[in-house]
Design a binder for these strands. Sequence first.
DNA 1: CCAAAACGGAACCGATCGGTACCGTTCCAA
DNA 2: TTGGAACGGTACCGATCGGTTCCGTTTTGG
Lengths: 191, 191
Amino acid sequence: MPVKARERLIQSAERLFYADGIRAVGLERLLADSGVGRASFYRHFSGKEDLVVTVLGAYERAYRGWLAERTDAWGGTPLAAFDAIIEHAETADFRGCAFINAVAEAAEPAAEIRRMASDHKDAVAAYLRGLLARSGYPDDPDLARQLLLLMDGATVTELHERSSRPARQAKEMAEALLAGASADGPAPAGT
Amino acid sequence: MPVKARERLIQSAERLFYADGIRAVGLERLLADSGVGRASFYRHFSGKEDLVVTVLGAYERAYRGWLAERTDAWGGTPLAAFDAIIEHAETADFRGCAFINAVAEAAEPAAEIRRMASDHKDAVAAYLRGLLARSGYPDDPDLARQLLLLMDGATVTELHERSSRPARQAKEMAEALLAGASADGPAPAGT
DNA sequence: CCAAAACGGAACCGATCGGTACCGTTCCAA
DNA sequence: TTGGAACGGTACCGATCGGTTCCGTTTTGG
């Protein structure tokens, strides 16, 4: 069975929204890119807003899966998460964090998008907290938030500089941060 | 002499672009808000793109002036810059960094906007470097970049959380960072 | 004082926006 | 095999996009 219309729409939207921004991508282009008829689009989504929410939800799941996979590949430590974002920044189609971009271009209310972005950041913070625990760091929610702030700071800076330098810099800062944290609790070398 | 049309356009655009995003603000609304005639707009600007560049330039100067003023008010130290962004995050119409938002919503090329954003970040980094020097920290360009990364990370996180918590967290991280830096060079308590 | 510049308002342009309705075809399962 | 769901294509809709042109008024400097 070929890929269904709904799935093609989500895939096209995920790519185009991320590359050019949500507002910049019209339905016309979306339909042409996905090869889906205009009517079919409205059979699957109540409107563009509905598609946007769906796509951000799909991105959320995909990003968390990607982060976990690449972090594991780099050793599964908190610092490995920074190796993951370093290589992410070096991909050709890197355009930062979809949620940061979505909130940045969303108009004042945009309650739904902001809520999804907030949930996404909470989820990543929870994941980082798990990484910290697995590596034997003290269970400090603030520490995970600090790592997340470093990651987000690197992500937005990379968009301006078009390099992975900020991610590498953030990793250095994380190393110092973790070195300090381990002094206040269990040793970083867990198990 | 009342405020000229060009100045009113820039002021309206600065406010509306920052609040709702650049793409979200059409000429119609700009003209209505500024009270400028459609023809007058094109007498002063070659088009919307021209206005966008002009507005970002004005924002750049305004932001640097604001940052210097508030940082001085908080003591003129590198850490005072974080006090400035803390109070910035607590203003009612806070919408993050105009350059970060502009780059986030800009489509793939957007060379001019990205260049302006890059220059802006360089300028802020240079300013932070000056603050570090004035406070007796070792002259390390990387240190200024690290502080900027913390500031930017806080700024984007504040947009999601709608609080100044990230800025306060970033300040704590900056304190630790500076404490470590002063150990490698002159004492932080400069003349 | 008066001419020229600056201005606000409106009519208009083609293009595109998000969204609706109807068409004929393709696909798939009962 | 056949009926119905899913589909792609197209013609529309009103609204708005950025941009151009003209006209009448207001402002201002020589």
